[in-house]
Design a protein around this nucleic acid. Structure first.
Length: 638
RNA sequence: GCCAAUGUAGCUCAACGGUAGAGCUCCGGUUUUGUAAACCGGGGGUUAUCGGUUCGAAUCCGAUCAUUGGCUCCA
């Protein structure tokens, strides 16, 4: 007898060896129809797994995340079969699930092209329509190796697999694949699916290994969910900062400088609005600002260690026969500023911020709009302090980070703490002291954080901050890094209370990371519909006809005098056309003026996203708009 | 850097071996307009670059550059 405990506490006694699927049938007919797999004592298993003994039993339907994942995994197998039946020479390597779908790595010398997707999908649809049962076979490790002998990929997969039992799954005529499982009971359980793309991928992610073809697909419970997902992708595409940047004339890229962004007047308005805010907050937190040169002698980079580790990604130049490097980081310059004079413990902590322009020669294939570029401005700062001050300084930086992020509407912040890696410098003691200081700072702020053991930089532990944009995508922005290396390399010292020279602790930190990248993220987060304080153009006056031009001009002067970013459309178009144009430019406020408004010193305000225009006195509008900007409000309602 | 795809007017796209075209933008004119596109006319391209095949190339082939999607990388 097997004693089966269901999630609601109910106990079911069944014959030993009964299959899980049959147990589910005993629980309910409807459930049996929906069941994809089960969890036995917390372990996922197929429906044809025999049950025995005392077990906790949980049915997985497509209603759960796990169920969906199983569907996707099975869909990967179906795709693999389709591909193998179309190209018998294709060799299967590895096909896992990923967020929203799955992929399958294939070794095949003939390239699979997007034009082939329809063919593959058709074959997949046939396999799914046939509703073929999927079955599991188990082998010992030894038998399994014999079974796949000659297939280097499968042999390798078995050697990497854990446990002594190796399972294979098969369906249809002769399709079989090494797989841990579980899978849906039959191919008909797979809902809506689509092949998304194909790309190269190294075997084991190792650039020295053979490049395989990776075919990406997505699978969902049904066609509707697939359609919703595709619609969501369309939405994300519309928010693409590269598309909006072009539409709104914010920035551009040119062949003459790949990876170097050109910021246009409207893009610079956003940039400067962020900079103004950034400076004001840093002032509040007692930072000073410095600026260090972009080109510095090569010797400096040898001293800093960058030469040894990163020279492949640095730009170099020669000045008067002397080698110079274009800075990839700001810290060496910051160290020179520190070392320029004697320091006392009484000055500490010294917080030197720098909006530093750095260049990194990224590989040509990794560039992506503003998000990955070769030249960018870091919102950097270097804090010099004593060991005792680390904790307070970290707390200060965290406060600063939260204050800055919340102004942009980023409230959901994920924190990660990375600890000592195998390759590191500095004594275990200093690592422990400083890692604990970071932990205590996070605990003092009552911040939940994830620890990434051994993921720290070789020169010190670090805290990374991730935000979530409106599409729930995660971006790493801020970083706080302790550095035991640089102060020693540069011989930085301060005079301690006991009149001895000591090495200061150096904290590197960035909050937005890169201005370019952050602006790219903001564009996507807001979909180009910036809050008033960031909007390149905050409002536009639209005249009904030429008759109101004089009033419009005086209104424009008044709004500009009030420090509002306003433009004027006196073009010879009808009002509907002017509104249309302002809409496509994502104008926050459209101020429609005609004879009526001129008579009463008013504006008729159309609010972006709103339906009905609002009539109000000019002074009232100015006061409301200025207040929204001062408070960085994100809504536009008047 | 690697794999694959793409590159036509300022923008979005068409033409797919036989004289490069449309809409929007831009310029000129008519119109004087009340809340998501008034009308007429005009300008604008050595089809990314270089080379090849061909009587003839945007179209086929090769190289280079750039972009896109991934992989690797991201101090």
């Amino acid at each position: 007898m097997a004693q089966i405990t269901l999630p609601d506490g109910k106990v079911l006694n069944v014959d030993d060896g009964l299959k899980a699927g049959q147990v589910v049938e005993k629980i309910g007919k409807r459930l049996a129809q929906d069941a994809l797999a089960v969890k036995i004592n917390g372990q996922l298993a197929d429906l044809d797994t025999p049950v025995s003994g005392q077990i906790a039993f949980h049915v997985i339907t497509n209603n759960s995340k796990e169920g969906l994942e199983i569907i996707r995994h099975s869909c990967a197998h179906v795709m693999a079969e389709a591909i193998c039946s179309l190209w018998p020479k294709a060799e299967l390597v590895y096909g896992p699930t990923i967020d929203d779908g799955f992929y399958y790595d294939i070794d095949f010398d003939e390239p699979i092209r997007p034009e082939d997707f329809a063919k593959i999908e058709k074959k997949m649809a046939e396999i799914i329509a046939a509703n073929l049962p999927i079955s599991r076979k188990e082998f010992s490790r030894e038998q399994a190796l014999l079974h796949v002998a000659g297939n280097k990929y499968k042999v390798d997969n078995i050697n990497r697999a854990q446990g002594e039992t190796i399972s294979f799954y098969s369906h249809g005529q002769g399709f079989e694949d090494l797989c841990r499982g579980p899978h849906v009971p039959s191919t008909g359980k797979i809902g809506g699916f689509k092949i998304m793309s194909v790309a190269g991928a190294y075997w084991h992610g190792d650039a020295t290994q053979k490049m395989l073809q990776r075919v990406y697909g997505t699978a969902w419970r049904n066609q509707k969910e697939l359609d919703d997902y595709l619609t969501m992708l369309e939405e994300a595409k519309k928010r693409d900062h590269r598309v909006i940047g072009k539409q709104m004339d914010l920035f551009s890229f040119h062949d003459e400088g790949p990876g170097f962004a050109f910021f246009h007047p409207k893009g610079m308005v956003i940039w400067n609005a962020i900079t103004d805010f950034w400076r004001s907050v840093h002032k509040k937190y007692d930072y000073q600002e410095i600026k260090t040169p972009i080109i510095l002698n090569q010797q400096l980079w040898k001293l800093s260690g960058h030469w040894d580790n990163y020279k492949e990604n640095m730009y170099f130049t020669t000045v008067d026969d002397v080698g110079y490097a274009i800075k990839p980081m700001n810290c060496p310059g910051g160290c020179l500023v520190y070392a320029n004079k004697q320091h006392s413990y009484r000055e500490f902590p010294i917080r030197n911020a720098e909006l530093g322009l750095v260049h990194r020669h990224e590989a040509s294939g990794v560039m992506h709009g503003l998000v990955r570029v070769r030249q960018f401005t870091q919102d950097d700062a270097h804090i010099f302090c004593t060991e005792d001050q680390i904790e307070d300084e970290i707390v200060g930086v965290i406060n600063l980070i939260f204050e800055i992020y919340s102004a942009f509407g980023f409230e959901n912040i994920r924190i990660e703490l990375s600890t000592k890696p195998e390759k590191h410098i500095g004594s275990d003691e200093i690592w422990e002291v400083s890692t604990n200081a970071l932990k205590r700072a996070l605990e003092r702020k009552e911040i939940k954080y994830q620890v990434n053991e051994g993921d720290g930089a070789f020169y010190g532990p670090k805290i990374d901050c991730h935000i979530q944009d409106c599409l729930k995508r995660s971006w790493q922005l801020g970083t706080i890094q302790l550095d035991f290396s640089m102060p020693k390399r540069f011989g930085l010292v301060y005079t301690a209370k006991d009149n001895t020279e000591k090495t200061p602790v150096m904290i590197h930190r960035a909050i937005l990371g890169s201005f370019e990248r952050f602006i790219g993220i903001l564009i996507e987060h807001f979909g180009g519909e910036f809050p008033l304080w960031l909007a390149p153009e905050q409002m536009r006056i639209l005249t009904i006809s030429e008759k109101s031009n004089d009033y419009a001009q005086s209104l424009l002067a008044k709004l500009k005098a009030a420090d509002l970013r306003c433009s004027l459309d006196t073009s010879d178009e009808k009002i509907g056309s002017k509104i249309m144009r302002a809409y496509t430019e994502k104008m926050p406020y459209m101020l429609v003026v005609g004879p009526k408004e001129a008579e009463t010193d008013s504006v008729n305000v159309r609010i972006r996203g709103g339906k009905d225009p609002v009539m109000m006195k000019v002074d009232e509008f100015v006061a409301l708009a200025k207040n929204k900007i001062a408070e960085k409000q994100r809504d536009l309602n008047l």
